[in-house]
């Protein structure tokens, strides 16, 4: 019988069957959660009728929500949706074969929480930004582009877009530097991602000790005060998806 994997945990954290958690998940998600234990590492799993993964949005969200519930009680390695193994023997093989790697990463995330920090251009600022930059002052136009030919006009337009983009990139780097200077005082585990859309100035994830949440909030509040024209968003805690990448064998 195939098993869906939700999370990996070290055996020291599991003392007996977590009846309350299993009951809660059964009630809320209609999933019968089980624990399969290897020598030092265990996995939260549930039986499934097929090893084929149905990638509907509902299933993905349900999986994420279930992992989230487990992560509220334990320090876990969250497994992404689609982690399905065909038998209990395969689960045990995965646990024992990768025990050292799992334990290493579990040690790094123990009693830590993942948060997301994003800085958005506000909608109004976006419009101002476009208006401010729509024309390049005459004196900053390179000499070679001065003159009124179709080819030069075309290049001038490209050059203006290029300078807007460069200014925006520099500004974004400045915001990123402000954030990283502060966050380094709190943790060395952070990652600044490539923003997914142009509306984001900063898209970062951090892993901090659970008791340092208020210090993180202070950093975010300070950033919002520094950049009142933008919107700073702090979300979490999330299961530590961004800091638990392991190549399993």
């Amino acid at each position: 019988m195939p098993f869906i994997l939700y999370a990996i945990i070290d055996n020291d954290q599991i003392k007996g069957t977590p009846a309350n958690l299993i009951h809660l998940i059964s009630e809320k998600y209609k999933v019968t959660l089980e624990i399969i234990s290897g020598n030092t590492i265990s996995a939260f799993v549930s039986k499934t009728s097929s090893s084929k993964v149905d990638t509907s949005q509902d299933n993905v969200l349900k999986h994420a929500a279930l992992v989230e519930v487990i992560s509220r009680s334990y320090s876990i390695l969250p497994m992404r949706y689609g982690s399905v193994l065909t038998s209990q023997e395969e689960v045990l093989f995965l646990l024992d074969k990768n025990a050292a790697a799992f334990q290493h990463v579990l040690g790094q995330i123990y009693h830590k929480e993942e948060y997301s920090v994003r800085v958005l251009f506000s909608s109004s600022h976006n419009h101002e930004d476009k208006r401010e930059n729509s024309d390049t002052p005459e004196e900053s136009i390179p000499l070679v582009l001065q003159g009124n030919t179709a080819n030069k006009n075309y290049l001038l337009k490209k050059y203006q877009n290029h300078t807007i983009e460069e200014r925006r990139k520099k500004y974004s780097d400045d915001v990123k530097n402000v954030f990283t200077d502060d966050i380094q005082k709190l943790t060395s585990c952070y990652e600044v991602k490539k923003p997914h859309t142009a509306a984001f100035l900063l898209d970062a994830v951090v892993l901090i000790d659970s008791h340092k949440k208020n210090e993180l909030i202070d950093i975010v509040v300070k950033m919002q005060a520094m950049y009142p024209q933008h919107n700073v968003i702090l979300t979490g805690p999330w299961p530590p998806y961004s800091f638990t990448n392991i190549k399993t064998q």
């Binding site: 958005l120 506000s122 859309t197 509306a199 984001f200 949440k213 909030i217 919107n231 968003i233 702090l234």
Partner: peptide
């Protein structure tokens, strides 16, 4: 309950996160 700090409008963040 996952949003700990956010000073902007809800619509803006929903719109941007949906694009992701």
């Amino acid at each position: 309950d996952k949003i700990i700090f956010y000073a902007g409008s809800a619509n803006e963040i929903i719109e941007e996160l949906e694009k992701i």
